[in-house]
Simulated assay, not measured.
Amino acid sequence: MRVLRSLGVSCVALASAVSLLAGCGGPGEQRHGGGRADAARPAAPGGNRPEGRPPAALRLDLPFDAYKWDDRDVWLLERARYTLVARCVRERGLDFTMPRNTADTGPPAGYDNSRRYGVADPRAVSRYGYHLPADPDGDRRRRRLQVWSEQVSAAEESAIYGDGTEGDLGCYGQADAVVDRGVAATADADDGWLAARSSATLERSGADPEVVRARVRWRDCMFRAGFRHRDPDAAGGDARWNLDGAAVPAAEVATARADVRCKESSGLLRSWHAAETALQRDAVGRDRPRFDRIAAARATRLGNARVVLAGEQPK
């Protein structure tokens, strides 16, 4: 069964960097310690974040955020795609049985970089260590979709995903064509370009001299607290932590709490964020027309999604 494609933005039209069940892959960057992947295009939505939107001090807003898809954008787009697919399948004379893959209420707008440089929220690490916060609602949706994938009829599956013949992308392909209406063909290349630039600014800012000095201060702070990790990546990526498992051992929580405290006292978080902010601001200034194209494509897709959800057809 091909349920994985239903969980996120299609690989063809809107390649994602993260998906709930790894359905589609794409460019992005991932920090150790359960950091979020960073994509220029939508990822598969899991609904509202269980911990809510991070406080402003932890959001770590960056210039590229204005050109990326935040959780609310993805939620809106996925609901529009689901609506179009359901309509398409029923127009073919078939029952549409696929469970909805989004929460009923959309998450707050705004891009979240709170784990871009590793864990930073003392409240979250006190409960989850380096694990991503639990998402019970998202887990339930994934389970429903998995059950559905095991029993969906061949006719419905073929209608949704296509029958495998060349040119037949199924109802999802048709939905993506509607969402993409009015978007220039170069937009996909520009989004891939943005994802690569976002990865590059993260890595380049990590080599900034002040960031390097702050990382040394972080290490010394951790050593004084009894933790022998050379940098935050090593702490979050410690082989003792099974970040794919449910258990969060006490040692992981203690390490993550010390990690956050030392990021604050060393100034690492502030230094790294400031260095990357400067790099991204310069990048936007140098390539303003390209960034404008990315913003226009995102706005067009979101506008089309809103039209679909209003029961109309994008022009």
Rank of each mutant, 00 (worst) to 15 (best):
A159F: 02
A200V: 07
V89C: 08
R228S: 10
A239I: 06
G267D: 14
G23Y: 03
G8D: 09
A56N: 13
E156K: 07
S16F: 00
D104P: 03
A185S: 14
K263G: 15
V125F: 02
R197S: 08
E51F: 05
D259F: 08
K68H: 11
Y67V: 07
D176N: 07
V12A: 13
M222P: 00
S265R: 15
A310T: 04
Q280D: 07
A80N: 05
D231Q: 11
G206R: 09
L194W: 01
T165E: 07
R281E: 10
R127C: 01
P249Y: 08
V178A: 04
F96M: 13
R142Y: 05
R31H: 10
G93T: 14
A80R: 03
A134M: 07
R143K: 13
Y130E: 04
L279A: 07
G311T: 11
A39D: 09
S266G: 05
C24L: 02
V85P: 01
Y130L: 06
I294P: 00
W75Q: 12
G267N: 14
E312R: 15
Y67K: 03
I160C: 01
N304D: 09
L94G: 05
G303A: 11
D168L: 05
G311S: 10
R261M: 07
V3Y: 11
K263A: 09
D282K: 10
D259N: 15
G167S: 08
I294K: 03
T300P: 03
G206F: 02
L268P: 00
C24G: 03
G8E: 15
S265Y: 04
A256V: 10
A256K: 06
A196S: 12
A66T: 12
S6C: 12
A200M: 08
P249N: 12
V284R: 04
F64R: 14
R115Y: 01
A295T: 06
L76W: 02
D65M: 08
R116G: 07
D220Y: 02
A154I: 07
A239R: 14
G303R: 11
C11P: 03
D112G: 06
D168M: 05
R261P: 00
A258E: 08
W241V: 08
R228Q: 11
A299I: 06
V3T: 06
S6P: 01
G25D: 11
L20E: 12
R281Y: 00
R298W: 02
A66Y: 02
L14R: 12
G182Q: 11
R213Q: 13
V74Y: 00
D191I: 01
S114Y: 03
V85K: 01
I160S: 01
A278T: 14
A250S: 12
D244I: 03
L14E: 10
A40W: 01
R181Q: 15
A109Y: 01
A256Q: 09
D233Y: 04
D282F: 01
V85T: 13
G25K: 07
R240M: 08
A239Y: 03
P45I: 08
L268Y: 13
A310F: 02
R100D: 12
A299K: 14
P45M: 09
V125K: 01
A124Y: 01
L14V: 04
A40M: 04
R213N: 04
L268K: 00
R53I: 05
T165S: 14
Q146T: 15
F96L: 10
R288I: 06
C24E: 02
